[in-house]
Computed example of a mutant assay.
Amino acid sequence: MLSAARKAQALTRARNMDHRFALIRWDDEGAMTLAPWYAEEQARVRGAEVTARISDGSAADMTGRALLLTGRFLLNALDAFASQTVTLHLTDAENTGLYLSPVLFTETDAITGHGYRYLVKPAIADGITPA
Rank of each mutant, 00 (worst) to 15 (best):
V103C: 04
K7E: 11
A80R: 12
E29W: 05
T70R: 13
A22S: 14
V45Y: 04
D28P: 00
D109P: 00
Y116G: 11
G64D: 09
V120Q: 10
A125G: 04
A80E: 11
P102G: 08
M62G: 06
L67H: 02
W26A: 15
A80Y: 03
L23E: 02
T70C: 08
R15K: 15
E40G: 12
K121L: 14
L90R: 08
R46K: 14
L69R: 03
L119I: 15
M1R: 04
T96K: 07
G64Q: 09
F73M: 10
G71Q: 02
Y116S: 09
N76L: 11
G64K: 10
A35G: 05
F81I: 06
G127E: 07
R117C: 03
A82C: 05
A5Y: 06
E41I: 06
L98W: 02
A80C: 08
P130L: 05
T106H: 06
L67I: 01
G57V: 10
L88K: 04
W26N: 05
L75S: 08
L67G: 01
Y38Q: 12
A125I: 01
L104W: 04
G47P: 01
Q84G: 07
G127F: 10
R65P: 00
E41F: 11
G97A: 03
V45C: 04
K121I: 11
L104R: 14
M1W: 05
D126E: 15
D27H: 07
G30L: 08
A10P: 00
D18E: 13
M32N: 05
G30I: 06
L98D: 03
D79A: 15
G64A: 09
R13C: 00
T12Y: 03
L74V: 03
T12K: 04
L88V: 02
P36G: 03
H114E: 15
P130C: 07
Y118A: 11
G127L: 08
A123T: 05
W37A: 03
T51Q: 14
Q42A: 11
A52N: 15
G71W: 04
A43V: 06
K121V: 15
D56M: 10
L67T: 00
R15E: 06
L23Y: 02
P130N: 05
N95S: 12
H19P: 00
G113F: 10
T96C: 09
L100K: 12
T108E: 06
H19W: 06
G113H: 08
